[in-house]
Amino acid sequence: MAQQLPLDELGTVIARIQGLLLTEEKVTDAVQYLALAAKESVTGTIGAGVSLLDARGRRTSSGYTDKTVELADAAQYQHGEGPCLTAWATESPVLVQDLRGDGRWPAWQAAVRHLPIRSVVSVPLLAGKESIGALKLYAATAGVYGPSSPGLVELFAAPAATLISHIQATEAPHRMTEALQASLYSRDLVNRACGVLMERHGLTHGEALQQLMRKARETGSPLQDISASILAGTPALRD
């Protein structure tokens, strides 16, 4: 018999999920917290998982509460079918009240036959007009989830999807900034090493850079490592 949370409890759950996600700076942490919150929020759930997918349906990030969910999810990606992928692709909730009598995903169902899964509810994570993944809940007995369950899960999946999408968007500039900082550091290192060689051997900047690059090729070492050895006083280049 499917259960529904009272409105006041549902509001508390939504606020808790939003609060957890807002404190996270990484998508991997955010999806893990969402999976844990979903499991604790819906009675009868033995495990929950969150999968973020790209435009081709390839998983980019995931969170799960236990090994059962991990194995069930892995089987979906291996066979290219299952309630999670269907919810993501159709942008509609998927309800399975008894997996043994449901024939929509034969390969996936055969793969998870040994797992304690009888009923499933999966909803898409919709951020604006984009489906960025899916949230799924598993139960060990049939009939745990009913017609009202997808709507209930969607109520807290919707704001969670928006927040996760925001975290995804803010992570990209951070990654770009880190890469830019590394690039600038490397360039500065190389330029300073060129300056040392120019002063030591009376070379032009271009000639010094060519020597550094030649040594890097000969030794199979990164250019910044050769430059660092010059600045540290190691005779990486012969006179």
Rank of each mutant, 00 (worst) to 15 (best):
Q4M: 15
A182N: 05
S149C: 07
L85Q: 02
R113S: 13
G128K: 10
L115N: 03
S183A: 12
E70Q: 12
G220F: 13
L36N: 07
A72V: 06
A208N: 08
A140Q: 04
V153D: 03
Y145F: 15
S148N: 11
L163W: 14
S119N: 01
E207G: 06
T170E: 14
T90E: 15
R238D: 14
V13H: 01
D73H: 08
A228K: 08
A87K: 00
D73N: 06
P124N: 07
Y145H: 02
E25T: 13
G82Y: 11
A75I: 05
P6H: 04
A15D: 14
P83A: 15
A15Q: 14
D54K: 11
T45Y: 00
P106K: 03
K67T: 11
H166P: 01
R104C: 01
P173M: 13
I230V: 15
D29K: 09
T219N: 13
S119R: 06
F156Q: 05
G57W: 10
S183W: 10
L184F: 13
L95C: 09
E70C: 01
R118N: 10
C84T: 08
R104K: 05
A38Q: 07
H79E: 05
A169V: 07
C84P: 00
A172P: 02
S149T: 15
D98S: 12
A37Q: 09
K26E: 15
L209V: 06
G63K: 14
A15V: 12
H201I: 09
C84D: 08
I17F: 01
Q76F: 12
Q97F: 01
E9I: 10
W108H: 07
A127D: 11
E70G: 04
L223S: 01
G63E: 01
T68K: 00
G151D: 12
F156S: 02
A35I: 10
P159L: 11
S131Y: 03
W88R: 04
P116G: 09
I230M: 14
P173S: 08
V196E: 15
L180S: 04
S229I: 03
A75Q: 08
T90M: 12
M176G: 02
L7W: 04
A158Q: 11
S186F: 03
R175I: 14
E178Y: 08
L20W: 09
G103N: 11
L231P: 11
Y138P: 00
H114I: 09
T68S: 08
G220R: 06
Q3P: 09
E24R: 14
D102Q: 00
T28E: 15
I226S: 04
Q168R: 14
T141A: 04
S148I: 06
S221C: 09
L125D: 00
I46N: 07
